[in-house]
């Protein structure tokens, strides 16, 4: 059952090196801007984030030993690390 992007805040912080769940993403499909933490999270072998409005894919994160393979969709507004 799905959770929220907030649930993988730790994984996202590993990937981006900063906390991003309070930042936003604008969807490539519906154009709506939502907090990354508010996206829908589906977990399996890795993670899939989906737009909370239209459900199109926002990110796929595959976990491989010692690494992540990440594909992002839409416009992610992420502040660079301070």
């Amino acid at each position: 059952m799905h959770k929220d992007g907030n649930a993988i805040a730790g994984v996202l912080e590993e990937i981006f090196t900063v906390e991003v769940t309070a930042e936003t993403r604008t969807c490539q499909s519906c154009g709506q801007e939502n907090a990354i933490g508010a996206h829908r999270l589906f977990t399996g072998a890795g993670y899939v984030l989906r737009c909370p409005n239209c459900s199109d894919v926002a990110a796929t994160i595959a976990t491989v030993p010692g690494d992540y393979r990440v594909t992002l969709f839409g416009a992610w507004s992420v502040q660079p690390p301070q």
């Binding site: 929220d4 992007g5 907030n6 805040a9 730790g10 912080e13 906390e19 991003v20 769940t21 309070a22 907090a35 990354i36 933490g37 508010a38």
Partner: peptide, 10 residues
């Protein structure tokens, strides 16, 4: 343990 994490639900 690692954290704290999450900046959305705060």
């Amino acid at each position: 343990l690692r954290g704290p994490v999450g900046g959305y639900f705060v």
